[in-house]
């Protein structure tokens, strides 16, 4: 086995001569002849204490009879009022398919007529969600981030359990997973590049054709999950670790927030970008829409993968 060369020129030469992938060699050395871990017997499981202390830690309920009564009555009154208001609104809704409904109002006509001119986006939906209603999309990406933060808080096993128990659970969890499955690996080798390229295509073409950040990011995340399923965590850690997740998510959201903040300070009328809008229909057109799509796609892809790995293992 060739030794891993750090010299860039030697590595290029190695690559040109179809030599061993140095990272691949490292991986094989690290993995060795890995066998499926045997199922530990139930009796061997280390005894962990039940988390009864949580109940003890919870704040004790203090009794406020008057407050409880008022709270109940107020809650019911407010709910009934809300129901009444909603029913009233529902009764006074315009007829379905009527000519003077909100759907056929001037707002949608305005979008259809002016989106291409004002935002440069051929795909009107992208023009609306990233430009006219960009604030809403900003909130959506932050909701995704808050969701994954909550999952990290709840599911992460880092520093939660003692080492013995963690090894036991890992072995028990991993016994049934498809390891070194030749069929899955071959299919993944063919599919993952296609899926990733397709995801990038959806993101980059977001302002030209149906698609955009959210759908493209979901495709990217699915490709990453497929790769992880076939080749295991060690291989994914070459390209995607917790550090990557942290930095990519934070930087993407920061960029979006800055762009949106700039938009507010310039009057919140229209997403001014200093970038020349270019010819509508080109990839590099429509100003800030392309970077914003890319940013949203990265956030969604990271969130998808993090959700998967958190629920599966509780760790990256």
């Amino acid at each position: 086995m060739k030794k891993h060369k750090s010299d860039a020129l030697a590595r290029l030469k190695n690559w040109l001569e179809y030599g061993d992938d140095p990272l691949e060699v490292e991986m094989e050395e690290a993995l060795g002849e890995e066998e499926a871990p045997p199922i530990p017997a139930e009796e061997d499981a280390p005894e962990w204490e039940e988390r009864e202390d949580r109940k003890a830690l919870a704040p004790k309920k203090e009794k406020h009879p008057l407050y409880d009564k008022v709270y109940r009555i107020a809650a019911e009154v407010i709910s009934l009022m809300l129901i009444a208001v909603l029913l009233y609104a529902a009764v006074h809704m315009p007829n379905f398919g009527g000519a003077d409904t909100l759907v056929n109002s001037e707002v949608s006509a305005f979008y259809v007529e002016n989106t291409l001119e004002e935002t440069g986006a051929v795909n009107i939906i992208t023009g609306i969600i990233l430009d006219y209603r960009g604030f809403d999309t900003l909130g959506e990406s932050h909701v995704l981030f808050i969701g994954i933060c909550t999952v990290l808080l709840l599911m992460s096993i880092k520093g939660e359990k003692d080492e013995e128990q963690r090894i036991f659970e890992d072995a028990y969890d991993r016994h049934f997973e498809p390891r070194h499955d030749e069929i899955l690996q071959t299919a993944t080798r063919i599919l993952t590049p296609l899926i990733v390229v397709f995801g990038i295509y959806i993101i980059v073409n977001g302002h030209l054709s149906p698609g955009g950040g959210f759908s493209g990011g979901a495709v990217l995340g699915a490709g990453l999950i497929l790769y992880q399923n076939a080749f295991g965590y060690l291989k994914v850690e070459r390209i995607f670790t917790f550090r990557t997740f942290k930095w990519v998510s934070a930087c993407s959201l920061l960029f979006y927030s800055l762009a949106k903040g700039y938009h507010f300070f310039t009057g919140a009328n229209h997403l001014e970008s200093g970038i020349h809008p270019g010819v509508a229909g080109n990839i590099f057109s429509a100003g800030l829409l392309l970077p914003l799509n890319a940013v949203v796609g990265l956030v969604v892809a990271c969130t998808m993968y993090a959700l998967y790995t958190m629920f599966r293992r509780g760790d990256f």
């Binding site: 049934f176 498809p178 499955d181 069929i183 899955l184 299919a187 063919i190 599919l191 296609l194």
Partner: peptide
């Protein structure tokens, strides 16, 4: 795409069944 993915997922399911 379907011819690549569907048999593979069937294979994985069958393998899981046979192991568990």
């Amino acid at each position: 795409f379907f011819w690549l993915t569907s048999p593979v997922s069937g294979h994985l399911l069958g393998r899981l069944v046979s192991e568990t």
